[in-house]
Design a protein around this nucleic acid. Structure first.
Lengths: 335, 335
DNA sequence: CTGAAAGCGCTTACAG
DNA sequence: CTGAAAGCGCTTACAG
């Protein structure tokens, strides 16, 4: 039976008080060289490892941020999440924070809020892909925890958030297609409860408007953001609206499903139908035909959001602000 | 200034002791219906949320597991990580645990151990892709924290671990190629410090041996597990060893790099060169030509590992054990 | 430069 | 069925 070694054990061994040990280890107070050395020796010999929970409780600080991922970014299919995560992790590493990944959110049923009480203590939160009415944002606000939204929250006035300029991006995509002579462009949009879907619709609508062309609301279709869904819904779309000549999707994964449906229907890409996706993840490059895609700066979104959150936590920023990342259209074989 | 509401506040408002509040909320002791109701009402009205850090400290339990990801599974490029993660998250959700993602590990320099003291308190750990000498395993062992390795640790006797049967899988792959008449098969293996690379080599070697054919150690090449690396190294390989007819890669991402190199050198796949990858992630299906790949049951590995870890944490298992997932070769256009 | 002691906000034997 | 109180292992004013 190994005896549990605490700061008390170290203090006794070094012949000092626990306060001195704490100060020596944290460096928050100057402790004489000899005493420090005695303490470090005791730490070494006892293989002392501070209990972080106790430290967190006493100091009211966890050096942990919660990442509330979202079912939208299906982690099994969409690299977009990976790139955002990479950006987050890189910054947090530099800033000495760690990340708690909220899995329960991934499983959240539409109406069924997860047990928010189960969440571990965090210094701040990153909330991905907000809904129009987002239970998580409400919850975090109530708990008075600093947070940054990745995406644009519905009530953006009082939030920190980081997002790509989705509306401008989709505006550019649709204009690009209209200029190529496409008149009937399908928007295979995501689920309507996400603000991200709204932004896409806005860009689409504005582009048509500014170009002076009419569009029908039937051309805008909401679909869960998965390849299979994209495939199935698009198979139907082809039946119902066979005269479209272009399609813009919510993300890269849906585009893969769309391209499968087009292939099965012998609709040539890009000669008969042009396809543009959003995300510019690895699959757009690898797919055959390679997919023209709107790059939304996923890595940058992640890193900026993490940067912003840490600044907020550390009170380097107080006033709600936001950062908008420019998008960039990458042309490939599908257009 | 909002007054901080603690269990004390609730107790006072409900006119009971903090112990009673605690018991009522946790259900660990039977509290009379009326008292319980009073307490719940107070909780509601005060919008009380327990301080989880304090709870963790008092109960010595965090309901959190640490996931020590590895630089091997480059999260920006490899869906294999995503699938494992999905398996882990699904199980942990059911078992009521949460996951702490260790970012610093991702950045670990070869010799430079991350600050292991910074790690948050956890009930157990999942260690991905062990090295032959793995500092993390040593560290976790010392801290006496339950852990399960994803992959096969070097000293497997005293560990819980879950792995695909990599050696058998690579054996099957190489046999499959040999039977197709290939004599010189390149193994584009991962970095040698990972046990995963060793297993692959074992399968490769045994297959050649059992088939009664010779191979050269020059045909086994170690490379960081990234597309770019796969590409660059393979460009050189083509120069040095132009007479190979097949290549087996460490993972799907490297295979993408290899196929790019082959294309640039006008080496037809599969007529001139056959390519087999491992992972069977989405890109193998989407790539053109579609890539024959060894499915290693990533999702299952993740879920089994999580299951096992929780069992260990909850003392449903004491005796070190392991689970080996069968692999499965999925033939596509590249062979 | 160092120490005694309160405090962080819970849980849990123990006693009644 | 309920409560008083010790305890979890740290940090941090405060005093000297």
């Amino acid at each position: 039976m190994k005896y549990k070694v605490t700061i008390e054990t170290v203090a006794q061994k070094a012949g000092v008080s626990t306060a001195t040990v704490s100060y020596a280890l944290s460096g928050k107070k100057k402790i004489s060289k000899e005493v420090t050395e005695r303490i470090l020796k005791a730490v070494e010999e006892l293989d002392y490892r501070p209990n972080i929970t106790a430290r967190n409780l006493a100091s009211n600080k966890t050096w942990t941020i919660g990442l509330y991922a979202s079912p939208t970014q299906n982690i099994r299919e969409d690299y977009f999440f990976n790139n955002i995560l990479a950006g987050i992790l890189d910054v947090l590493h530099i800033r000495k924070y760690q990340v708690h990944l909220y899995a329960d959110y991934l499983h959240e049923k539409t109406k069924d809020h997860p047990d928010l009480n189960l969440t571990q203590p965090i210094d701040g939160a990153l909330i991905m892909n907000p809904r129009i009415n987002d239970a998580y944002i409400d919850h975090i606000k109530k708990r008075n925890i600093p947070f940054v939204v990745i995406g644009t929250p519905n009530e953006s006035e009082n939030c920190f958030y980081v997002d790509a300029d989705i509306a401008a991006g989709y505006y550019a995509v649709v204009q690009y297609l209209l200029k190529k002579g496409h008149k009937k462009i399908i928007l295979l949009n995501g689920s309507p409860e996400y603000t991200q879907s709204e932004k896409r619709k806005t860009g689409y609508t504005m582009a048509y408007h500014d170009y002076g062309l009419e569009f029908s609301n039937d051309w805008i279709i909401n679909v869960p953001m998965l390849e299979e869904e994209g495939y199935h819904v698009f198979m139907q779309t082809i039946k119902k609206n066979p005269d479209f000549t272009a399609v813009v999707t919510f993300n890269d994964t849906i585009a893969v499903g769309v391209l499968r449906a087009l292939k099965e229907n012998n609709l040539q890409v890009p000669s008969r139908v042009a396809v543009v996706s959003a995300g510019n993840t690895m699959i757009t490059r690898i797919h055959s035909p390679a997919i023209t895609s709107l790059d939304m700066g996923a890595y940058e979104i992640g890193s900026k959001a993490a940067e912003l959150l840490v600044d907020v936590i550390e009170k380097k920023r107080i006033q709600p602000s936001h950062e908008i990342i420019q998008t960039r259209l990458v042309e490939r074989e599908s257009t």
